[in-house]
Design a protein around this nucleic acid. Sequence first.
DNA 1: AAATAACTGGACACTGCGTCCACTTATAGC
DNA 2: GCTATAAGTGGACGCAGTGTCCAGTTATTT
Lengths: 184, 184
Amino acid sequence: MPERADAARNRARVLTAAEDLFAERGARNVTMDDIAKAAGVGRGTLYRRYPDRAAIALALLDDHERVLQEKLMGGDPPLGPGAPPAERLAAFYTAMVDLLDRHSHLALAAEVGHSRFTTGAYGFWRAHVRALLVDAGTPDPDALVDVALAPLAPEVFRHQREERALPVDRITAALRVLARGLTT
Amino acid sequence: MPERADAARNRARVLTAAEDLFAERGARNVTMDDIAKAAGVGRGTLYRRYPDRAAIALALLDDHERVLQEKLMGGDPPLGPGAPPAERLAAFYTAMVDLLDRHSHLALAAEVGHSRFTTGAYGFWRAHVRALLVDAGTPDPDALVDVALAPLAPEVFRHQREERALPVDRITAALRVLARGLTT
DNA sequence: AAATAACTGGACACTGCGTCCACTTATAGC
DNA sequence: GCTATAAGTGGACGCAGTGTCCAGTTATTT
């Protein structure tokens, strides 16, 4: 059974309203009530589809992440298959920083603390990086993979950008150093 | 003016009660009310000294952290001064993992998300690791230092230990690999 | 013993969460 | 078209936890 027309319309309204609110005042200062009000929808309707803010942010992020995921699997090197693992890892870091830079408000909304690790996206990044580490002959990839992904936590990125006022390209360069260190 | 005797007694009761509760059911499931009740103290008294859970956890962590901080500054090598920076960094990682292992419930309570970076302790670790990176001749230590500290986030440690069921020594070994990669 | 300043604790108002259910509306079969 | 019905809707409700406030209490000083 396909989705009902009014339900689809409301879903779209919720997503665009949430995106606006997150961008405007940061996810921390947006309540479920705010989103419902802004979307012109009742609380019940909102909760029917999205149990919490993270679910909404995740839905919004999903599109952007899927694009990157496809590039990783079937795109051109060095992001896609073909390049040596050290270069693919560096390219992955660069792409992730770019993603964080463009959508950090969403990332922060979606991945508060623990929940970060339980999203499907984290599983994908993890599998990808783990494969690269295996390919590069790094010892104990299962332990190192979470270490390699830790600097991509949205909180870390936000801290570097805002508290430390680091430009994006310096963060990228630092992660390139890390990529080199982990694959040799 | 010294602290009044009854105030000191109440502070001690709050701290031990909080430590017990955190250890017993995890910081996430302990409310300020719980702590006040368990300490036999009113809400107002509790809030007078500690504005939130993080402040209490921080006070509890403080002692343990100070011990390590002193070892870093004036203890024996390789933790203290004297050893080459690569070894000191590796020793620092090992000591931090040990600290996390023994007090992860407190660390998780104290450093939820963003607040992690604003604690005095983070500033200390940051300065220490930054100096080691400078010493090792690593490029752009200001950008790399937060990368180097990211894997020590309590959430990452908890994920590795519990979700991934990694033993402590494998986490330590992985961080030693990282230390080598960052100082060469 | 009285003065005083700090400390105490529970009542209170408030915010945000999540649920529930009576009502509405889109779709399918007649 | 018209009705049946199941999905979808929305706001009222109860709850949990936060943080504040102030009248009363208690340690300390003179």
